[in-house]
Design a protein around this nucleic acid. Sequence first.
DNA 1: CTATAGATTACCT
DNA 2: GGTAATCTATAGA
Length: 205
Amino acid sequence: MQPIRRTECGVALFDLLAGRPEDVAPRLLGATVRHVTDEGPVSLVLTETEAYGGEADPASHAWRGRRPRNLSMYMPAGHAYIYQTRHHLALNVVTGPQDEASAVLLRAGRVTEGESLARASRGPQIAAQRLARGPANLARSLSLTLDLDGLDLMGEGPLTLTLGDQVARIDVGPRVGVTRAQDVQWRFSVPGDSTVSAYRRASLR
DNA sequence: CTATAGATTACCT
DNA sequence: GGTAATCTATAGA
């Protein structure tokens, strides 16, 4: 019965991820991301997510269409889109139908496994709730690299996503740091959770 | 081609 | 609060 249960669970997760990013993002709060590195596994429970709506969304990396960097956004739901901005990486879960290029940015989480490994990447003095606060810190806690871009998060690879219990209450607000579509309320977080990053509106220059 | 900006963070004052 | 770290992509000459 074990393989059947796993299959049903996988189908349910894919069906969820195939929905609209603004519907998927709040449902991913409480889900677990796990990366099995050479040093061992690191897991975290998501506390903050943001939705990006593909080519129709002026804040999305896919707004100007297919580019070498954003190709994995056009893959089927459940694949990883990992990109580099300035000096850091960020992890997205692709959502919606194939070729729509919508995704959910994973902005923060609470480390639940492999905290010593996360600390090895982030620094020995970092408070536990700050290890994976902010998308770049989340990526560093998980020891992500660009070669994980495009991986199937529902497969047998080293980087996986599994659903958890749905959280009871969810905060909704505008996305952090975007210069276009600043008032779209597509940022979701667990109310009062100390691992959630602070909201900062992008300057308009 | 050069200039500029970005879904950021850490460290300095 | 200001700035430096460092890669991709766009706009404009």
